[in-house]
């Protein structure tokens, strides 16, 4: 049951994250959308681990942790870049305004 709930939540997060990543212009929003997306995937992974039976499968857990670390690093990099960009241009939108 929890597994299904995890799974559904994860799927919803993935959807929201994808939407945000595609539609939003502001770099920070995109970064947040990416994190949502990532979290959704990790939740799904958790659900998968849960399905393996009582106690769960340890391998996915290890993977989720690794994934979170990676996502953290990516977010940090993203934020650094956004800050840099904002300092250079005064805006935090990586797309050229004329499109």
């Amino acid at each position: 049951m929890t597994a299904t709930l995890y799974g559904l939540t994860g799927a919803a997060l993935v959807g929201i994250g994808l939407y945000g990543l595609i539609v939003r212009r502001h770099a920070l929003r995109r970064l947040l959308a990416f994190n949502l997306l990532g979290s959704g995937v990790f939740l799904l992974f958790g659900a998968v681990a849960e399905r393996a039976g009582p106690g769960g499968d340890p391998v996915p857990h290890a993977m989720i942790i690794t994934g979170i670390v990676v996502a953290l690093a990516a977010t940090a990099l993203g934020v650094a870049l956004v800050l840099h960009l904002a300092r250079e241009t005064g805006r935090a939108e990586p797309d050229p305004p004329e499109g």
């Binding site: 595609i22 539609v23 212009r25 797309d95």
Partner: peptide, 15 residues
Amino acid sequence: ERVLREWPAAGLSLL
């Protein structure tokens, strides 16, 4: 090319 370089267009192409 100008259209494809638009972010939403790119995202949609990915999908």
